[in-house]
């Protein structure tokens, strides 16, 4: 990974951070406000698990990105953090879809409401869902940018050799 830019100069790092923040927003909001009368007050374990694992994996990926700037020996691990980001993309895609599947009652009520729905439920729900989807996109973009940067670095290395 010679000639690679330091993490703070790389777009993939910042999109990764953005993904982390978005996952946290989605996760925290879901845990705090997700239990409603439309889902029996039960949070979906799949959403919790997928989001929590995503947070862990992304933390690991970003940590290696940062550590690589200070400890060159860890560069060989940083080379593969994009795989973790892809995994986060897949997991958060799953989380996003589960947020829809497990909330079909609420979604049904939004479209064909029989009883008035408290608007705060809608705000919370859309915050969680949009943040999950956006985090998923950010994680994918971060992985792709990192992959492209790694490719260029490799080409540069070959040219230099």
């Amino acid at each position: 990974m010679q000639n690679a830019k330091p993490f703070y100069q790389r777009a993939d790092f910042y999109t990764g951070v953005a993904a982390f923040v978005l996952i946290f927003i989605s996760f925290a909001n879901y845990v705090a406000n997700g239990a409603t009368q439309y889902n029996g007050g039960r949070l979906a374990s799949s959403v919790i698990a997928l989001s929590a694992v995503s947070l862990c994996l992304l933390t690991l990926a970003l940590a290696f990105d940062v550590l690589a700037g200070f400890f060159p020996k860890t560069e060989q691990f940083a080379e593969y953090t994009r795989i973790l980001k892809y995994a986060v993309f897949v997991l958060m895609l799953g989380s996003f879809l589960e947020l829809i599947v497990t909330e079909t009652n609420f979604i049904g009520n939004m479209f064909a409401s029989v009883d008035p729905i408290d608007p705060i439920y809608k705000v919370n729900y859309f915050t969680v869902v949009i943040a999950a989807l956006a985090s998923c996109v950010c994680a994918l973009v971060s992985g792709l940018l990192q992959s492209r940067a790694a490719g260029k670095t490799a080409e540069n290395s070959e040219v230099a050799q």
């Binding site: 892809y86 895609l93 879809l97 589960e98």
Partner: peptide
């Protein structure tokens, strides 16, 4: 791998639904 995994997740969700 990314594309297949993403599609797999979509169909898992559909299966769950």
């Amino acid at each position: 791998c990314i594309v297949f995994a993403a599609l797999m997740v979509v169909f898992i969700a559909l299966s769950h639904a």
